[in-house]
């Protein structure tokens, strides 16, 4: 490809039609705390796995609400479930149960 000195960025368009409402309802049913997140990022900042990889719970919740499941899973499957995010969460979200259930509902193995 010819280098013109600039490139096209990938589309950042969000299509809310991609949201799997069934799964989203399921996750809010098993862990209602899912709705409490205010995306402050304390969880990502304190994350043990975040030191080595891109694990980021704040982003995962955001992505799931935007219907980007694959990207979300890639950001959560490295979680070691150590529980630091639960302790720092200012909203008192049970993050560990949330992570376990996100993996259970969204990741097929």
């Amino acid at each position: 490809m010819i280098d013109f000195g600039y490139s096209l960025t990938s589309s950042s368009r969000i299509s809310l039609d991609n949201i799997n409402q069934k799964k989203l309802k399921k996750i809010t049913a098993v862990e209602p705390d899912f709705l409490k997140c205010m995306a402050c990022g304390s969880c990502a900042a304190s994350c043990s796995a975040g030191n080595f990889t891109k694990v980021n719970l704040r982003m995962v919740i955001l992505l799931l609400n935007r219907g980007m499941e694959k990207e979300a899973i890639a950001l959560i499957e490295g979680c070691m479930l150590c529980g630091k995010c639960t302790l720092v969460c200012p909203r008192g979200i049970n993050t560990r149960n949330l992570i376990i259930n996100i993996l259970k509902i969204y990741k097929e193995v």
Partner: peptide, 23 residues
């Protein structure tokens, strides 16, 4: 010092023995 790999007990107690083994 540069951040720890979890000991695996939280994962073990959640029932995921296999993943805990990796840690």
């Amino acid at each position: 010092i540069d951040g720890s790999i979890c000991c695996g007990r939280p994962l073990f107690m959640s029932g995921d023995k296999e993943s805990a083994k990796e840690l």
